[in-house]
Design a protein around this nucleic acid. Structure first.
Lengths: 149, 149
DNA sequence: CTTGACGTTGACGTAAACGTAAACTACGTA
DNA sequence: TACGTAGTTTACGTTTACGTCAACGTCAAG
């Protein structure tokens, strides 16, 4: 049994908590996204590693590559920040925000179309007379959308 | 020069218009996402292919795999829709929508954090006395966020 | 008739993000 | 002390989404 726990995690504990494998955490370390403490050979993860991991995984969920995530995390590491670098950081950050906003627009558009289509099917009923689909509300015949040739 | 144009596209025309390569369109066809008309060997793309391609590319932008996009497009191909299949389609569709909404939440959270961080840096200034960064507005010393060990 | 632009089908290459297996170490316990 | 559990490194395998040839067909222009 470990003597002191004090808010630290083994690789398996942290991985398990976030639903990833130890291999994944090592991979992120290889890519420079995580730099856990070492006790001899073994990795010891602290609260800050947890925070970074959460960031990484959310970045993944929104579609960034590990490299892009690394660059975004680098934006945060400005301890040695030179005055001139600061405006660069800000600009990169803003450009990221714009990209995310565009992506959000794409998502909203997709949601809208799926929603519309979903309701359309939900209201759909077979007009058995002429063997084709019509809308229950308008009686309009259904044309495939998006069209299949 | 082609005799009749009538809203058709060569592979290069369509690819070029959407900023992808012909290879990409052939790949999408291999995956069953597009099925352009053939004139002999050559592919002829129509308006419906355009619509589908736009869908595919937007799907990619929001982070779906080609397989997932294919499944979503399949939802639209319900011309032979059996009554029992319909509720399945609706449920799949709704589950997609929920996933997209979660993804949108992730994006919003990321935007918020980047925005906050961005403004923080913009207001940052070096306190030369003790050689560390402080916030211009509050004078608070800066702690890295997310923390680097 | 040859050249060039565009098209076709293989088929192999590649980068990213891990999976997986091998071979080894260290430790608490039965 | 032998065993099981958890950790380590090294290294090759895998999937996705195309890129990149190679080798060939086709058609209009010079």
């Amino acid at each position: 049994m470990r003597a002191v726990k004090s808010d630290t995690y083994s690789i398996k504990e942290l991985a398990c908590e976030f639903g990833v494998t130890p291999r994944t955490l090592r991979h992120y370390e290889d890519q420079g996204l995580l730099t856990p403490e070492r006790q001899g050979q073994n990795r010891i993860y602290h609260a800050n590693d947890r925070v970074r991991l959460a960031w990484i995984l959310r970045g993944k969920r929104v579609g960034f590559s590990l490299q892009e995530i690394g660059e975004m995390l680098d934006l945060y590491d400005i301890g040695d920040g030179r005055e001139t670098q600061r405006s660069v950081t800000v600009e990169k950050c803003r450009s990221r925000i714009r990209a995310l906003e565009e992506q959000r627009d794409d998502i909203n558009a997709t949601i809208d179309e799926l929603q519309e289509f979903c309701e359309l099917i939900a209201n759909l009923v077979r007009d058995n007379k002429n063997d084709q689909w019509i809308r229950r509300d308008t009686g309009e015949p259904l044309r495939h959308y998006p069209p299949r040739n």
